[in-house]
Design a protein around this nucleic acid. Structure first.
Length: 576
DNA sequence: AAACCGGGCGCG
DNA sequence: AAAGCGCGCCCGGTTT
């Protein structure tokens, strides 16, 4: 009963090999067949608009070009000589199609109402072809099209991964989650009542403050109560409270911790986001200016480490968790070609490397110095330690210092593959020009200087965070292909294909796409979790390592930087 | 009643 | 511990 749609599949990046008109419900079969034949690069207006239905029908694709994601990169990239045509097609500068709502969705009209305010890309074939042509022209005008092609392919592959992870879901042990909540908060209360352990802790706080009516949930009222009890803090944040040794502080900190857990990941969250043993967060690829992913709903990027034990593999399966140690400084070492910094991290913890080479005294100092260098710290311990890095790692420090200088002056910076920072706002530019007028007050100059410093720290961090995000995307993109080529449950080794099933072609996946084969279930900036049949867990772990090595080579060639992983295979994700 | 703001805190 | 970057979400409180 679908309406007519048009599909274009492309051979490689250029040649159109076919244009077809078909019903929406004919699409999965069509794509499955084409995918098996020639594995084209499919062009999607916006991946979440097309791919979830394919996945639901058991069809995966190998590669695509997501016009919305690629538009966002091309319209800003400094590498593109002529961006005007792309930039003017501003209907493509839009929000992603909202992914399927949470299980307990709002009333349908509300969703429709909300969507009508969100700007979305067009999905018809003529618009897509026109945009594809504009993007191709822009890409050809680029000074280094190879890098940009790499970035666009990785970004689009990220779109596929996000849709696949949402379809697969994170295997989630509701009973374990409930057990953790009960241990911290007490048993689940009726309705919106506060759990018993929280009430008890709150009573301890009120008793210690000698204020039986103290309201612990309002910052302002709580601050007042604290002052009345002689606790002189300027805010109610936990690091400031920890300075005081008043007997009310310990239970108050406990209460805040409980309150956070209940509000962010309590029973209500469990009801809303976990069903049939799967947590299905909504990822937003390219949602952060630097190229990192964002999340929308469900807090996918904020799952507290406290709840990690609730991630549990299905019976007979394993979770393989892997994260890159010190990804950002390694990305910086690679992109700046800083051999000394690369050497400090080679085959070991990069922070310990700094200690071993006598640059700082302790691992903690190393961490403060390196983070301070990337974030632009100027005060405290960090401000004291960063200059030592300038002596030891001149190339790396030169790169971030110059990015900061460019940003502070209102200029743009780009990542290794060519993602360019956004132009400073009109307000920012007005502030700068006002401070250069003859009648500028000291207050004007102060404000302008502070804003310039802020922008400098932003661009300083942009090149590092953004390049690290590119490495992570390349890792993900390569990993999903490697995992898809692993054998399924009860199948032998790769190559030993059983009759009737060809491994290595995604389109052959049948039935529930992820029920038989190793697949990604979680991604968080520098960390992945793969869900794999126990018999293939080692092979999946090898795929994760191999993909990391490939990503390093793909981006940085033979630069002497490695990206070592901390990797564990287990039934449960480890507590952090 | 809905939209917005800032504090606070979870993640990298 | 934060500091210095990037996020999302919840809450109470204020504005519209």
């Amino acid at each position: 009963m679908g309406s007519k749609i048009a599909v274009v599949d492309l051979d490689g990046a250029r040649t159109r090999i076919g244009s077809h008109h078909l019903d929406v419900d004919e699409l999965p079969a069509f794509v499955r067949e084409r995918e098996a034949q020639s594995r084209p690069r499919w062009v999607f207006s916006d991946t979440p608009n097309w791919y979830p239905a394919l996945l639901a029908a058991g069809v995966r694709i190998e590669r695509c070009s997501d016009l919305r994601l690629t538009h966002a990169i091309l319209m800003r990239s400094e590498l593109v000589a002529d961006r005007s045509a792309v930039a003017e097609a501003d209907q493509w500068d839009a929000d992603p199609v909202s992914a399927p709502a949470a299980p307990e969705a709002e009333a349908l009209f509300e969703v429709t109402e909300r969507r009508s305010h969100i700007k979305q890309v067009p999905h018809d074939i003529e618009s897509a072809l026109a945009e594809f042509a504009r993007q191709s022209t822009a890409l050809e005008s680029a000074s280094d099209p190879g890098r940009l092609r790499l970035l666009l392919a990785a970004e689009s592959a990220g779109g596929l991964v996000a849709a696949e992870m949402q379809a697969a879901g994170v295997p989630w042990d509701v009973d374990e989650h409930d057990r953790i909540l009960a241990e911290e908060l007490g048993p689940r209360p009726m309705g919106d009542a506060k759990p018993a352990k929280m009430l008890a802790v709150a009573d301890q706080v009120r008793a210690a403050l000698d204020d039986p009516r103290a309201n612990l949930d309002s910052h302002i009222k709580l601050l007042h109560s604290l002052h009345s009890a002689g606790i002189n803090v300027a805010s109610t944040s936990k690091w400031e409270l920890a300075e005081s040794d008043h007997p009310a502080i310990a239970p108050l900190l406990e209460y805040k911790k409980q309150s956070r857990l209940l509000a962010a990941n309590g029973w209500h969250w469990l009801d809303e986001w976990v069903s049939e043993g799967r947590y299905r967060p909504v990822y937003v690829p390219g949602g952060v200016v630097t190229g990192r992913w964002a999340a929308s709903g469900g807090g996918a990027l904020q799952i507290p480490r406290q709840l990690r034990p609730a991630l549990r593999a299905d019976p007979g399966w394993r979770l393989i968790s892997a994260d890159v140690a010190q990804l950002e400084p390694r990305a910086l070492a690679a992109m700046s070609g800083d051999r000394a910094m690369a050497e400090a991290g080679r085959g070991r913890d990069l922070y310990s490397g700094l200690v071993d080479e006598g640059i700082v005294a302790t691992r903690q100092e190393a961490k403060i110095a390196v983070l301070g260098a990337m974030y632009g710290s100027t005060t405290g311990d960090s401000g004291r330690l960063v200059p030592r890095l300038r002596t030891s790692f001149p190339a790396a420090m030169g790169l971030v210092d110059s990015a900061a200088e460019v940003g502070a002056a209102g200029g743009l910076v780009s990542t290794w593959l060519g993602r360019t920072s956004p132009v400073p706002s009109q307000g920012w530019r007005r502030l700068q020009s006002a401070s250069n007028q003859f009648d500028a007050t000291p207050a004007d100059e102060n404000r302008a200087r502070r804003a310039a410093g802020d922008q400098g720290r932003f661009t300083r961090n942009f090149v590092v965070q953004g390049t690290a995000a590119e490495w992570a995307l390349a890792w993900l993109a390569d990993l999903r292909l490697r995992l898809a080529r692993l054998p399924g449950v009860d199948e032998g080794n790769p190559g030993a294909t059983s009759a009737g099933e060809v491994t290595g072609h995604m389109a052959t996946a049948s039935g529930p796409v992820f029920s038989r084969r190793a697949h990604l279930v979680f991604f968080l900036h520098d960390e992945v979790i793969v869900h794999a049949p126990a018999q293939h867990a080692e092979a999946a772990a090898a795929a994760i390592r191999d993909a990391a090595a490939s990503a390093g080579k793909l981006l940085f060639g033979d630069a002497p930087v490695d990206f070592p992983l901390d990797l564990t295979i287990s039934e449960r994700a480890a507590k952090g």
